[in-house]
């Protein structure tokens, strides 16, 4: 690797390491928490990117895999069943179980494409949520709409990440510790994504996206390769779900609605479908900007008009919608598309 890219990576690494300290000191821990969520959503978006961006399979129920990972963690590490497995055991299991669900969802949808596939996956996402909502009778498995509380926090080397740690004279709060864990895992997922993209499997995914019939004629077993895409994407979702459960120490079906699936899809599309840096950017922006707006809109109106004219929450959704429309009109390939597609659009 050339020296320049080593330097770039070192700078990015330093920025990522310092970010929570700087943000925590200047804006407070609430904002570090936003960064934690940004990392979680980036992992989700990268998983969905495999299905939607690489293989071109429009999946509107992706959040179901997040739910599977989260509930698996909740059930295996909470007083609900009195089971307290460690996170390092649950997270890989969550990835595997979510991957299995990915195959289960993928199998009946193999012949579907585009809008039909979107509707079936949307239904699948809702089924999972409704199951979680109702599996409290006759046997109480998920505790229904009340959700599962008092989930064990994630521990690394015996240290629960929810407890602050002093190191080099700096107090690292729980959200900061989680930040480091999430960023490391997100970087791992970025790495896996990049490696997959530039491989035999990644090319087969793109080939299916481009022309399924030609892909078959090239000797690609499209059934297996598509199922692999669903499984890989779901695996990422399952891991981030488990992290989410440990981080929040509480899960309920509410967190896994259709709107969440749509948000993750927006991150992928807005950032640049199939382009990993673009998807990361999309995930970061769609987590941080709405939060900034939520905090900033009220005081800004106060300062400009002397009173709050519009409810910040309603205004936020309005602007979010407008931003999406603008991006799709003026940058249809996303904010940071693959260079070759950008060349395409410049012509």
């Amino acid at each position: 690797m050339p020296r320049k890219s080593w330097l770039g990576m070192a700078l990015i690494g330093a920025a990522l390491a310092l970010a929570p300290i700087v943000v925590g000191a200047s804006l407070g821990n609430a904002w570090v928490r936003v960064l934690d969520f940004a990392a979680l959503y980036i992992m989700l978006a990268l998983g969905l990117n495999i299905v939607v961006g690489f293989a071109g399979l429009l999946d509107l129920g992706y959040i179901a895999f997040y739910a599977v990972g989260a509930y698996l963690y909740a059930l295996l590490a909470s007083p609900h069943f009195g089971i307290h497995w460690p996170a390092w055991a649950i997270l890989p299991l969550g990835a595997a179980v979510a991957g299995l669900f990915g195959v289960l969802l993928g199998a009946p949808t193999l012949r579907l494409r585009g809008d039909y596939l979107a509707i079936v996956t949307l239904g699948f996402g809702e089924i999972i949520r409704i199951f979680l909502n109702n599996l409290n009778t006759p046997i109480n498995i998920t505790n229904g709409p009340k959700g599962i509380a008092r989930i064990d926090p994630i521990s690394v080397f015996g240290q629960p990440l929810s407890k602050p740690v002093e190191f080099l004279g700096i107090t690292f709060s729980g959200v900061m510790l989680y930040y480091y864990l999430f960023v490391v895992l997100a970087l791992g997922i970025v790495f896996v994504g990049i490696r997959l993209q530039d491989s035999r499997i990644g090319r087969a995914w793109v080939a299916i996206r481009e022309d399924e019939i030609a892909a078959k004629a090239c000797g690609i077993n499209t059934r297996n390769v598509k199922l692999l895409a669903f499984a890989m994407g779901a695996t990422f979702g399952g891991v981030s779900g488990g992290l989410f459960a440990g981080f929040q120490e509480f899960v309920s079906p509410e967190s896994f609605g259709l709107m969440e699936s749509v948000m993750v899809l927006c991150m992928v599309v807005l950032g640049g479908m199939g382009h990993i840096p673009g998807v990361v950017l999309g995930g970061l922006m769609l987590t941080v900007l709405p939060e900034a707006f939520r905090h900033g809109a009220g005081p800004m109106q106060q300062a400009m008009f002397g009173k709050v004219l519009l409810d910040p929450e309603a205004l936020r959704m309005l602007l979010f919608g407008l931003a999406l429309i603008a991006v799709m009109l003026y940058r249809p390939a996303g904010l940071w598309p693959e260079p070759r597609h950008r060349r395409e659009l410049a012509k």
Partner: peptide, 30 residues
């Protein structure tokens, strides 16, 4: 019926899919 957004070389590489073996693990670990 080409893979329109892939390079010429990638198109041909896809053609060798059934004559190559690398899977997910190989792709990640290289």
């Amino acid at each position: 019926r080409l893979f329109a957004n892939m390079t010429a070389r990638e198109n041909v590489m896809v053609g060798r899919h059934s004559r190559t073996r690398a899977g997910v693990v190989g792709a990640v670990l290289r």
